[in-house]
Simulated scan of single mutants.
Amino acid sequence: MNFPNVESLEEAESLARASCLVDDEDRRQHRKFWECLRSRTLLPFLSPPRVLRSQSEFQTWFLDWLGGVDDKELVVGMMAMYQLWLARNEAREVPMIEDPEELAKRTVRLVEEWQAVQATSSVSKQQTVEHWLPPAAGWYKCNADGAFSQGDGHGGGGVVIRDHQGAFLAGESLFFPLVSDPERAELLACHRAVQLAREKGVQKIQLETDCQGAVSKLRSTEMDRSVHGPLVEDIKKLLEEFEEASVNHVRRTGNMVAHKLAKLGCLNNVNSAWNVVPPGFLVTMLDSDAGD
């Protein structure tokens, strides 16, 4: 990321002092932050539209920006915005906001420090990746995952059942037309996973999901009195019908097959089911899990 040189900053410094003070309450927020000389100096690649009618419109634009920039711009942009925010807060107590050259230098220094820390910790992060693990002989593992579309108010679920050798028994991609929040989508997926296991004659089940909240609720011996309580209690009752049952948490990397099916159901708005023979798009992932 190339910042303007010192000469160009000094040349415009007198204008910056007049246009970048935070006590000018008459200026619109867009003008006061995004069109300020320091913002345009530090963030030439980040400028929202002039007309943003609501916080949700800004959120939509910002998320689109996050998805379109490269890693270097993302890191520098986020750090620079944070430093600008700090400088404006401090300017409420002092007569002038911090010099833009110092803001730029500190941003670059902090980014370099952060990148150095990330480089030294990359090895340990790779070692924490969790993979799908088969259950003990005689048991079946039922992986479940939920997906949620806040804008559409619906969700999806993914369910896959495998034995101790990783062999595929059954799987479903589900569409939930009315879902209030992500946790409900997760619980609906767990509910269907347990139902499907019963339909397939499974006697010993390990229900596994990457939603820690759902796991905590299903493990609790107390009656769940939350908004999802009836659904939670129904799943608990179904689990009692098995010869043996357990509920476990797994990281997303160990739940990728169910995750893919959940996203598919949420996106396509349809229910799909497979018995014994998995769909072609899952074969590689299933083989990889069995190989691990």
Results as ranks from 00 to 15, higher is better:
F3I: 14
N5T: 15
V6M: 15
E7R: 15
L9I: 15
S19N: 15
C20H: 13
D24I: 13
H30F: 14
R38V: 12
T41H: 02
L42C: 05
P44W: 05
P48Y: 07
P49F: 10
V51W: 03
L52V: 01
L52P: 00
S54I: 09
T60W: 03
F62I: 02
L63H: 07
G68H: 04
K72Y: 05
E73F: 06
E73M: 11
M78D: 01
M78H: 06
Q83I: 00
W85C: 05
W85K: 06
W85G: 05
L86C: 14
R92G: 15
V94A: 15
P95V: 09
E98V: 00
D99M: 08
L110K: 01
V111P: 02
A116H: 03
A119M: 00
A119F: 12
T120F: 02
V123F: 14
V123L: 12
Q127Y: 00
T128R: 15
L133V: 15
A136Q: 06
A136G: 12
A137L: 04
W139T: 08
K141C: 06
K141D: 06
G155Y: 04
G156R: 06
R162H: 00
H164Y: 10
A167I: 07
L169C: 10
E172C: 02
V179S: 12
P182Y: 04
R192N: 06
Q195Y: 09
R198L: 10
E199M: 12
G201M: 11
T209M: 10
C211T: 09
K217W: 03
R219C: 01
R219V: 01
H228C: 02
D234K: 00
D234R: 11
K237I: 10
E241M: 12
R251W: 14
R252P: 01
N255Y: 10
L261N: 02
L261V: 05
K263G: 04
K263F: 03
L264D: 03
C266L: 04
C266G: 05
L267Q: 14
N269P: 03
N271L: 12
V276I: 03
V276N: 06
V277Q: 06
F281K: 03
L282S: 01
T284W: 08
T284M: 07
T284R: 11
M285I: 07
S288Q: 10
D289K: 04
A290E: 02
